[in-house]
């Protein structure tokens, strides 16, 4: 696509991990703060919690006509099932982010740029494993230019339950710093 910014992203995990919320935060960062276009569509089973679910996000300078993602540039997987279901669709050179403790990646995957972070464990240390999704968003902010990191921080602050902003921003920074270290090879 011409015109610069264009990212297709799939965030996948199971219901209750904040997968859809992450999609919403990404879209909010892109539209409300970066002032470009974004769509979010979601798919999940009949159950609200525990079943496989995924968020399809497209971020683009151009108008987005077709909102589904078939070959993402970025795949975030927070469960083994989510990883297995989506890894083959990730395009060559695509960015893969997984939770170290929840996803066992295939060996010798040279098609993709892969990073992993013990997001759930880090969130647990911060006092609430429910913030694993925010840790991974910070991690994404460091490793990708899909959205501006500052816009993501703003969107996190506006999207999490009132009273938890500070904790969540701390979780975001943990993820962000881990990404920075890994990028520079010191992590």
């Amino acid at each position: 696509m011409s015109g610069g910014v264009y990212h297709e992203i799939i965030i996948s995990g199971y219901g209750g991990q904040g997968v859809i919320l992450n999609g919403s935060i990404l879209g909010k960062a892109a539209t409300i703060y970066d002032k470009i276009n974004a769509t979010l569509v979601q798919s999940y089973g009949p159950e609200a919690r525990g079943g496989a679910c995924s968020a399809h996000v497209i971020i683009s300078k151009e108008t987005i006509s077709y909102p589904y993602v078939h070959n993402p540039h970025i795949l975030i997987s927070m469960s083994q099932e989510a990883y297995e279901n989506n890894i083959d669709s990730l395009r060559d050179g695509g960015l893969l982010l997984t939770d170290t403790d929840l996803v066992k990646r295939r060996k010798n995957d040279e098609r993709h740029v892969s990073y992993s972070i013990p997001a759930t464990r880090m969130a647990e240390k911060l006092g609430n494993k429910m913030m694993a999704n925010i840790v991974i968003l910070g991690y994404l902010a460091s490793l990708s230019d899909a959205v501006n990191a500052e816009s993501l921080r703003n969107a996190v602050e506006k999207s999490v339950p009132k009273g938890t902003e500070e904790k969540n921003l701390k979780a975001f920074e943990k993820g962000y710093k881990r990404g920075e270290k890994q990028k520079s090879g010191t992590g």
Partner: peptide
């Protein structure tokens, strides 16, 4: 369903 559940600005 898709328009109803789609999120956009």
């Amino acid at each position: 369903e898709v328009v109803g559940h789609m999120t956009e600005k």
